[in-house]
Design a protein around this nucleic acid. Sequence first.
DNA 1: CGCGATTGGGAAAAGGTTTTCTCAGAGGAA
DNA 2: TTCCTCTGAGAAAACCTTTTCCCAATCGCG
Lengths: 346, 346
Amino acid sequence: MSSDASPAPAKTPVTLREVAAAAGVSVATASKALNGLGRMTAETRERIRETAQRLGFRPNSLAQSLLRRRSFTVGLLTNDTYGRFSLPVMSGISDALVDKGVSVFLCNVEDDQRLGQLHVDAMLDKRVDGIIATGKRIDRHLPVDLSNLGVPVIYAFTQPDPGAIAFVSDDAGGARLAVEHFCRLGRRRIAHVTGPASFAVVHARAQAYRDVLTEKGLPVMEPLLGSWSEAWGHEAVKKLFDRKGEKPDAVFCGNDQIARGVIDALRERGLDVPDDVGVIGFDNWQIVAEATRPPLTSVDMNLAALGREAGLTLLSLVGGEPAEPGIRKLPCRLVVRQSCGRPPGG
Amino acid sequence: MSSDASPAPAKTPVTLREVAAAAGVSVATASKALNGLGRMTAETRERIRETAQRLGFRPNSLAQSLLRRRSFTVGLLTNDTYGRFSLPVMSGISDALVDKGVSVFLCNVEDDQRLGQLHVDAMLDKRVDGIIATGKRIDRHLPVDLSNLGVPVIYAFTQPDPGAIAFVSDDAGGARLAVEHFCRLGRRRIAHVTGPASFAVVHARAQAYRDVLTEKGLPVMEPLLGSWSEAWGHEAVKKLFDRKGEKPDAVFCGNDQIARGVIDALRERGLDVPDDVGVIGFDNWQIVAEATRPPLTSVDMNLAALGREAGLTLLSLVGGEPAEPGIRKLPCRLVVRQSCGRPPGG
DNA sequence: CGCGATTGGGAAAAGGTTTTCTCAGAGGAA
DNA sequence: TTCCTCTGAGAAAACCTTTTCCCAATCGCG
């Protein structure tokens, strides 16, 4: 009965030299044995493997990186520490990379140029294989210059440099999803309440909203632009329902907070959601979407998938494979809960 | 007029050897010149410095780390990718470390033991100087074993191993802050609506709530335990205000979502906040606290400061300075908005 | 002018791994 | 037995920087 060789957690890491000595071979042979390279008897290889195992040998990644000029490390730059947008993106990136042995440096640069330079320099010094930039807005640059860095750069959910590779959500497509869903449910007077004109996504979504309604031959109500807040949702309901003429039977909102405000305001007016008015939000911020009464149908930007895609693309770039520059729009999906109603026959 | 030597962004990084060659000295001298060590004429030093500057030399951190046995890198383990608790913690950690040239590996281990091991191994292979563990609950372990790793470990806002160093928020202190504030404002019948009994913080805060009221000679109403949701806030108001006897004139809530539910429910009953009933939340989740009507007074756990503290402590540990094991509770602070009312004379 | 001390700078090892080259010995063929 | 070809394994260079030791030249002083 062989005693179980528990690989003692090394206080001081075991080196290849020690493994080689213990196995009675040279470091060269030990290296080749563990990497499955070189030529040697099966017994020798196995003996070295066992010795390494027993000693708890793990190759020093710094030494490997130095030699290979590849650190299995990427930098993730963001200016959205607290936000809920870049987080799923980060998570997706990390997910995509961990299995390939790649670790991620998280660098929050706020909106501070000095901090940005500091982080970029630190990343470059540490010889990251590549950099992913992400942010809280799709139409704003990070406060850093990422051109000519000598390592591949990918932009994910932030404004890219011209000629770069970027992944963003397809906001127009997401808006279509929502409006078309309302159409399918038989809604005829669909309003759009959204954020400030300073956001590019506001225009992209509003245009898609108009396009769908025009295609379907439904009346287009001019989108109401305001802030991204619940309060604006309240106010917008007042504007929509106090004016004379036909009232909307559906409201497509630019984010979930606005939608929350809209739903609350409708209820306060005695209007039923979804029977009288259907509501769809944007972002699918779970904690908000599930707290509205009734739970909110919302457009999800698939940010984790976006991050995953960005991570994999960066890796292929690092591997030397070519990739077309340009902006890739990834599709959104509609998460149907109860605020939009059921099909007429349903 | 000297032409401005623009440090050309190196496609392939410049090495010390190249700097030395360009300056006509040995690498040893170049190294010493740039690090302010050794003895040489001021001119030599300056010439080397200029050459390095001109060539855009930046020392290869991997080589330095290999030699110094210090990577200026720490790992941050979390199981709270989407959550709002560990984010401020992370931000604080990163803030504290970036100025010391230390970068942070962000590792999301979800609740997956395999993933945890994967990340820990990767971090160890990359020779992190230390590890910080953080999570979404103060009373749950991460799914990883961090004992005997050979590098210092600090716990921040997660359940520590015995004998480890941990930073957590002082939940009892935070609760005292809230309840004492109500007392100062002259509220006499203060209720407590909080989360499920399975959370340690629920008990800590509830006990502090009882303690303060007892100290002040005010009636203690048994805390209402439920879920962390708005819906529970609604329900709790029903329980509190439908029963006979005196009604509360203040409600201290276990988190901001509950508080939001409470405020909405009170308004629906025609009760004024803060005139009839004061409300204080917990967590100071800005986006919720500022969306309630009126804006919510809430206890802030100072998580960024907690993270900063954890980061600095880890660094001192890495530097070889000793530190007492144990759990350090960091104070909360009360962020006063409008839901709690003003002093009687105010 | 002779001697010791100082000065300016270089050679080399170290850190841990990978990879190319080299080489000793064994085996086979003639 | 001699020559040639494999086979198994080791030596050494390379990656890039830091640091210790060392050496040649200069300086000061008697």
